[in-house]
Write a protein that binds this DNA or RNA. Structure first.
Length: 415
RNA sequence: CGGGGUGUAGUGCAACGGCAGCACGAGUCCUUUGGGAGGAUUUAAUCUCGGUUCGAAUCCGAGCACCCCGACCA
C-alpha cells in the first residue's frame, strides 16, 4: 500500500481525552477513532490488525471443528423471555443483561444483541433432533452491544464490539468436557500466535450465574481490570474472586507459591450445562429412545480487546510494536531523500513476492517525520532507501523491536 | 449509579472579571530533506442554556460531553 494515498494521518500529540495507553497510541497512529465513550471506529490500519486477529482465531476454531455462521444483531424479545433474560428489573440481577433496547415503528420492542446464547440455542432446535446430530460446535464474529455503566480503558471495555463467540452442543458431560479442554488449548495457541502467550494464564474463575466455575484467560498487565494469583511454575492462575483455601486445595496450589498480579481478561470459556437448552427446548433423542437436553458450553474472545492488550504489552515510548502475526503490514518501506527510484522498484518487487508492504512514498514529509511515523505505526520490519544507503548499493533494514540496524545489498535482500 | 476531575482554533496548551494568545496542523510562496526543518504570509476557537455584572472563557445555577476511582461487568 502506498502511504501517499492513505487518508488517515498520524497526530503529533496523543489525544487529551484518553488515559489508557492502548487508546492513546492507536488514536495517535490513526488506527482507530473514538466516536463517543466506549465506541470506537476502526480505520484502515486498525481494521487490518483486527482482521489478522480474527483470521488467527478463525483458523484455530476451524481446527477444532468449529463451524462459522453469522447471527443477527436485532433480537426477538420472545426468545429471551423464555430464559428470563429480557426484563432486567424483574429477573435476578445476575441474569439481567445490559441491554440496548429499541422499538419497531408500530409494534413492540427489539433488543440489540449483547450475547447470543438464546438465539443460537433456538436456531439449533431446527437442526438437532437425534444423538447422531451431536456434538456440534458453532461460532461467529458478531457485534455485541452492551450498555456498560462505565466504558473505560480505551478499546478494552466498550459498549459496541465484535466478539468471537463459540457455543458447544454435546450429548453428555464427558463429551462436553473433552471439547472444553480442546478449546482451552486452542485459546492458548491463539494468544501465543498473537504474541502474548508467555504472559497469558488459564485462570480459574467464578462461573457467574451459569455454573460454579469457569476458566478465564488472563494476560498479566498493569492496565488490567482483574486481580489474579499466579503459580508460574505450574502455569495456572486463580482469579481473586474465587481465591480461597478450598479452591487452592482442590487445584493443588500453595499460597506461598502464588504471586498477585493485575491482568486483562482476553478470553473466557464456561460450561452452560442445560441452562439454555431446557427453557428453550433444545433436546435430542438418545440411542435408547429417551429425550435429553443438550449440554452446552460458551467460549468468547474479543478481538479488539486482544488488540488493545497487545498494544499495552508490547509498545514502547516511541509507539506501537506489532508482532509479525497481527501487524497491519510486515514491511514498512521508507523512501528518503535520493532513494525514491530504487524504493519504488523495491516496493514493486516485494509486492510481487506477496509481501505486505506499506510504502512511504510521501514527498511532502521530511525524513525525520517519516522515521517518527514508522516508529509510531510499529510495523515489524523497516527498510530505508536513501542516497546514503545507495552509495553502498544497499538498503537499511531494522526491526521495530531492536535497536540495531544493518545495511543489506539491494540485490541480496531477502525477507 | 456514588465520588473526583476536565471542557478555549483541526490538535496540544495559555489568558487577574477588562482587546482571546502561543505552538503544531492546514493554505500560498521561497529555501530545505536521516529522527517531527527554516523564513514570509494566510486560516481557524471559548460545550449548551440561563443568571450575576457597565463588562464573563473566567463567578453562580442547570444541562450535556469526556477522563479517572469505586460499584457493576457472560
Amino acid at each position: 500500500m502506498r502511504q501517499f494515498q492513505l487518508f488517515t494521518k498520524t497526530s503529533r500529540n496523543a489525544p487529551k481525552d484518553e488515559e489508557s495507553k492502548n487508546a492513546k497510541l492507536l488514536i495517535q497512529a490513526g488506527f482507530i477513532r473514538k466516536e463517543m465513550a466506549g465506541v470506537y471506529s476502526f480505520l484502515p490500519f486498525g481494521l487490518r490488525v483486527l482482521n489478522k486477529i480474527i483470521g488467527i482465531i478463525r483458523e484455530e476454531m476451524n481446527a477444532i471443528g468449529g463451524q462459522e455462521l453469522l447471527l443477527t444483531t436485532l433480537q426477538d424479545p420472545e426468545v429471551w423471555k423464555k430464559t428470563g433474560r429480557w426484563v432486567e428489573e424483574e429477573a435476578d440481577p445476575q441474569h439481567g443483561l445490559p441491554w440496548f433496547k429499541t422499538k419497531l415503528v408500530n409494534k413492540g420492542e427489539l433488543g440489540l444483541a449483547n450475547t447470543h446464547e438464546e438465539p443460537l440455542t433456538n436456531l439449533m432446535r431446527e437442526h438437532v433432533a437425534s444423538y447422531r446430530d451431536l456434538p456440534r460446535y458453532v461460532y461467529q464474529f458478531q457485534t455485541k452491544f452492551r450498555n456498560e455503566l462505565r466504558a473505560k480503558s480505551g478499546i478494552m471495555r466498550t459498549r459496541e464490539f465484535i466478539m468471537k463467540d463459540l457455543y458447544s452442543f454435546s450429548r453428555n458431560e464427558e463429551e462436553f468436557r473433552a471439547f472444553y479442554e480442546q478449546c482451552a488449548e486452542a485459546y492458548m495457541k491463539i494468544f501465543t500466535r498473537a504474541g502474548i502467550g508467555e504472559r497469558t494464564y488459564r485462570t480459574f474463575a467464578s462461573g457467574g450465574s451459569f455454573s460454579k466455575f469457569s476458566d478465564e484467560f488472563q494476560t498479566i498487565c498493569q492496565a488490567g481490570e482483574d486481580t489474579i494469583y499466579v503459580d508460574k511454575k505450574k502455569n495456572i492462575a486463580v482469579n481473586k474472586e474465587v481465591y480461597n483455601d478450598e479452591i487452592l486445595m482442590e487445584l493443588g496450589l500453595k499460597k506461598n507459591e502464588m504471586s498477585e498480579e493485575r491482568a486483562i481478561e482476553v478470553g473466557n470459556i464456561f460450561p452452560l450445562g442445560t441452562k439454555f437448552s431446557v427453557p428453550l427446548g433444545l433436546t435430542f433423542k438418545t440411542a435408547e429412545g429417551s429425550e435429553k437436553p443438550v449440554i452446552m458450553g460458551s467460549y468468547g474472545i474479543g478481538p479488539a480487546r486482544l488488540m488493545g492488550t497487545v498494544v499495552e504489552m508490547l509498545s514502547d515510548e516511541k509507539g506501537i510494536v506489532w508482532p509479525e502475526s497481527i501487524a497491519p503490514f510486515s514491511v514498512h518501506l521508507l523512501a528518503l531523500e535520493g532513494g525514491e527510484k530504487e524504493a519504488k522498484a523495491l516496493y514493486e518487487r516485494l509486492e510481487k513476492q506477496g509481501m505486505e508492504v506499506l510504502y512511504d512514498d510521501r514527498t511532502d514529509k521530511s525524513s525525520g517525520e517519516k522515521l517518527v511515523d514508522a516508529d509510531l505505526l510499529g510495523i515489524p520490519t523497516r527498510i530505508v532507501v536513501s542516497a546514503r544507503t545507495l552509495e553502498q548499493g544497499s538498503v537499511e533494514v531494522k526491526k521495530r523491536n531492536e535497536e540495531k540496524h544493518e545495511l543489506v545489498k539491494l540485490d541480496a535482500l531477502t525477507l
